[in-house]
């Protein structure tokens, strides 16, 4: 997953043997899990006849039929809640929400219901359900359609929140999420759907929830990120090495709740500097949490204050120059990394 991967044009053109897009990897995991377990079914807006708003579920209705690939009306609160109910009696629903923005309509079912069932009923009943949805911005979709609330959900006890950054992890972690007995929010991302990576179809191992990855090794600085922010951070690390001679490690969280604090801390103890990057607003966000964990776990090892980069803290404006300025682009990550490395602030 390098800077190149993002620059490549059409996704169909390049998928060589073992290479697939993030979108294809998700589809593969869904197919494999549906074939394996009758209880797994998909529902959401436009997932069937329309082949999915972002074509993730393309072809699945033809393969599995309209009972297992269920088109819903625009009724997020009802069909997310219906997923919870079905899961409570042993179904394995995978609910697609068109984008994370629309999950807010169903927030009550997610936070007040799905997240509560296990503990509130004394462990008597479980909710083995997955909600898949993309976050992200960058296409001038404006204030109501460009948001990444990952931190809100990761801050909710009772939920598990996964947010992989490459196709192989997307596949193995979605399989893990579907087999998990708790409600899992599986966060995808709009621009990441086209990202390509190696996926071995023969290897159907399932991912480990709660395990971060070292996406790139380095010794001068640790960048900690997840989902598309990891793609951006890897590009930034490349630039930092090529143009500034720094060796940058990138820790890809993959799982936000549970959070792999140990891997993050090991990395920062090694590099002594940390930059946290996320796609969403940083205040009270994922990077707030990571920074707090780092200062606690690595207090004696830090050579610079922990730095953060995220979306500028405004509802995203439409005009292209404003949107670009607001995004946590590689230029901003590089600048923040240099500030952390050179103690400019």
């Amino acid at each position: 997953m390098t800077a190149q991967a993002q620059a490549e044009p059409g996704e169909a053109a390049v998928s060589g043997p073992g290479t697939m897009t993030f979108r294809e990897a998700i589809r593969l995991a869904l197919r494999e899990e549906m074939a394996r377990d009758e209880q797994v079914f998909v529902m959401g807006e436009e997932v069937g006849l329309f082949d999915g708003s972002y074509k993730v579920t393309s072809g699945l209705m033809d393969e599995f039929g309209p009972d297992r690939v269920r088109d819903t009306p625009i009724s997020e609160e009802a069909f997310v809640g219906a997923g919870i109910g079905a899961a409570m009696i042993g179904e394995r629903p995978v609910v697609e929400i068109m984008t994370l923005n629309f999950l807010l309509v169903a927030m009550d079912q997610v936070v007040n219901h799905a997240a509560k069932v296990g503990a509130m009923f004394g462990g008597e009943v479980r909710v083995p359900m997955v909600i898949r949805t993309p976050n992200g911005a960058g296409n001038q979709l404006t204030a109501q359609h460009s948001q990444s609330f990952d931190g809100w959900f990761a801050g909710t006890p009772g939920l598990k929140v996964l947010a992989p950054a490459n196709p192989a992890d997307a596949r193995s972690l979605l399989k893990a999420a579907i087999r998990d007995d708790d409600p899992v929010l599986f966060i995808e991302n709009l621009p990441i759907y086209k990202e390509k990576g190696e996926v071995d179809p023969g290897d159907d191992s399932i991912g480990e929830i709660g395990l971060a990855a070292i996406a790139r090794e380095g010794s001068d600085l640790s960048i900690v990120s997840h989902s598309f922010a990891t793609v951006r951070s890897l590009q930034a690390a490349e630039i930092l090495e090529r143009e500034h001679g720094y060796s940058v490690e990138v820790v890809d969280l993959r799982s936000l709740r549970p959070l792999d604090v140990a891997t993050v801390a090991d990395s920062v103890v090694k590099t002594n500097r940390a930059l946290c990057v996320e796609e969403g607003w940083p205040s009270f966000g994922v990077t707030s949490e990571i920074a707090a964990r780092i200062q606690k776990a690595c207090f004696d090892d830090l050579d610079a204050p922990v730095e953060r980069v995220g979306m500028a803290e405004v509802p995203l404006p439409y005009a292209k120059p404003l949107e670009l300025a607001a995004m946590p682009g590689t230029d901003r990550i590089v600048a923040a990394a240099i500030a952390t490395l050179e103690g400019a602030r």
Binding site: S288, R308, G310, A312, E313, V314, A325, R332, A336
Partner: peptide, 13 residues
């Protein structure tokens, strides 16, 4: 000690 190092962009704009 701004949240992400670019207070000008975030808060002055």
């Amino acid at each position: 000690g701004s949240p992400f190092g670019e207070e000008a962009l975030t808060f002055d704009a």
